[in-house]
Amino acid sequence: MNIKKYEIIKPTTINPIELGYEESYNKQIDPTVKQLMDMSQMQIAHNILQDTM
């Protein structure tokens, strides 16, 4: 018989805030970083074009 030497993870309920860690746990993201993370590809492309012109 094979004995599992590792864990099997099953679907469960997660509070998404728990996916933070120490300093990031339940902390607010800086608005400048949020602006980057929320940018669409068109917005980023527009930004690059302005940079290279």
């Binding site: 300093e23 800086d30 400048t32």
Partner: peptide, 26 residues
């Protein structure tokens, strides 16, 4: 972890990066 800078409202300003800097980095 004491040398980690997380992008929270409190810690990110120490990097002094504008949105243009972030786009360049990306």
């Amino acid at each position: 972890n004491d040398r980690r800078i997380v992008v929270t409202k409190e810690q990110f300003p120490s990097l002094d990066l504008s949105i243009e800097d972030l786009v360049d980095t990306y």
